[in-house]
Design a protein around this nucleic acid. Structure first.
Length: 455
RNA sequence: GUGGUUGUAGCUCAGUUGGUUAGAGCGCUGGAUUGUGGUUCCAGAGGUCGCCGGUUCAAAUCCGGUCUUCCACCCCA
């Protein structure tokens, strides 16, 4: 059989795993410093937990897990006859793979509400699955790194999450733009433009594309979605706004609009109390598709104006927002408002790789390879190997006393900086042949001296 | 989910209007070199041409299906 893996999934070799861990470790370190604690949830959730939370589009992208046993005998016969897949699913699948980490977290909080302290601050680094068509930087299995806090409406957390973004990307050496908006401001826009409530989604989807298709494209998109020319004109005028202050008069008659402005002003008030490394800006065109967001929303993009980053082509590398009602779905009675952001580790990886931002790895690499000339020397070397490891040196012994040429070649492939060759002469004198693989120079030293040099 | 694109040796890729036994570079194995890798030279191994079916005297090549890759939508990290 020919080996293969499912579409949109990947294997990772040692070099990749080490780099991925570098990203995860950096992110985790910042999360921990802000007081967040780790949790994990299952790869599978009840399908009912997942459906309806991400909009119609999201439901289509959910991976469903087929029931075990004789699932067809229990299937909805009518749907089966009619070949109606959507209708058939509930009767043959009761579980699905998680689509993100936020919904499982909301479920977790509601389920354990009597056992956890509020506000509950957690982080979670686990894979998620989407049945999307793969492209570059878009996979069916990928990791998300989420931080969320539930049980507080304080806007301090909105500010802290932006600071976390800022700090993580500073540590990773990547310049980004952190964009902030508020769903209430979008609602205000819809209201000010005289749109009915059911047109709200259409409007946000269209304006979200502004930087991609331009103002004319957005206007086309809006009219295609049955939005009147008059409303489009008003929306266009509002989209030109980059300052919160300027929106106040526009939203004079819109309560949610004014509330959104007030919230963002408070967030920026917190943020302006200290320095930030990256650009953090209000962006009225930021919409985000996920249905459950109610307040502030975030998105992070690579800063294309930063030196060396001009040609990076990558979608958003992080996003998030406040969800006031999500936990209610799972029976949270009070205090269930949450806010959180997510890091797209895979895309961050791709960008960092393209910019060569990964530091050379020291902790995870082999420092020393022992090479033995014959069986007797191999035993001798095994003992020396233990001493080197006991001293904290990452060391290996070639498994057989093969030809030195072959062992040297292996050392070369493994990129080991130093080797020790042991044969009769070395065992007799106690001085081992210690070779620097970069310069090719070799000297005879006692094992202790070699260990000292590598420590 | 819609439209397009890709697949030939471990890797990167040639392969003519369909026509002998499908090639190259790199890598791999062995030798030059029985105590030393990276350079050089010599030799060798390695292929169900993604998979299934069809057209044809004859298919890597043409046709259909399918899987995969990448791209544009949709959406998104």
């Amino acid at each position: 059989m020919k080996p293969s893996i499912p579409k949109g999934t990947r294997d990772f070799g040692p070099a990749e795993v080490i780099k991925r861990n570098y990203i995860f470790d950096t992110i985790r370190e910042v999360f921990v410093r802000y007081g967040f604690q780790p949790i994990e949830t299952p790869a599978m959730e009840d399908l009912a937990t997942l459906t309806g939370k991400y909009g119609e589009e999201g439901d289509q992208l959910l991976f469903k897990v087929l029931n075990n046993g004789d699932f067809l005998s229990k299937a909805d016969d009518q749907a089966l006859q009619a070949k109606d897949s959507a209708k058939l699913v509930p009767s043959i699948s009761k579980r699905g793979l998680r689509y993100d980490l936020t919904v499982p977290f909301a479920r977790f909080v509601a389920m354990h509400q009597n056992d956890i302290p509020f506000p509950f601050k957690r982080y979670q680094i686990q894979p998620v699955w989407r049945a999307d068509r793969p492209q570059k930087g878009r996979y069916q299995e990928f990791y998300q790194c989420d931080v969320d806090v539930v049980g507080s409406e304080s806007l301090m957390f909105e500010a802290e999450l932006a600071q976390i973004y800022d700090e993580v990307f500073q540590k990773l050496g990547l310049k980004v733009v952190i964009k902030l908006n508020n769903r209430k401001i979008l609602a205000g826009m819809a209201e000010a433009a005289g749109l009915s409530e059911d047109r709200f989604m259409d409007m946000t989807i269209a304006i979200d594309k502004l930087d991609k298709i331009g103002m004319d494209g957005v206007k086309q998109e809006l009219s295609k979605r049955d939005i009147s020319a008059e409303a489009i004109e008003k929306i266009e005028a509002m989209l030109g706004t980059t300052e919160l202050e300027a929106l106040k008069s526009t939203f004079a008659a819109s309560k949610p609009g004014l509330k959104g402005i007030e919230e963002l002003e408070t967030v920026f008030e917190y943020l302006n109390m200290g320095p930030t490394y990256n650009t953090i800006q209000f962006d009225i065109t930021l919409a985000r598709g996920l249905n459950y967001y109610t307040g502030c929303i975030y998105e992070v993009a690579v800063d294309l104006e930063a030196e060396g980053q001009e040609n990076i082509k990558m979608g958003s590398i992080g996003g998030g927002g406040r969800y006031a009602n999500l936990t209610e779905n799972f029976g949270m009675r009070t205090n269930g408002s949450g806010v959180g952001v997510s890091f797209g580790a895979e895309r961050i990886y791709d960008v960092m790789e393209e910019l060569s931002l990964f530091p050379e790895d020291k902790a995870n690499t082999l420092q020393l390879l022992f090479i033995a000339f014959d069986e007797k020397a191999h035993r001798y070397a095994f003992k020396a190997l233990q001493q080197a490891r006991a001293a904290g040196i990452n060391a290996e012994l070639y498994p057989d006393p093969a030809r030195v040429r072959k062992q040297m070649k292996y050392a070369d492939q493994r990129n080991v900086p130093y080797t020790v060759v042991i044969g009769d002469r070395e065992m007799e004198s106690g001085e081992l042949a210690f070779k620097n693989m970069v310069t090719g120079q070799q000297e005879n030293l006692q094992l202790n001296a070699i260990i000292d040099q590598l420590k």
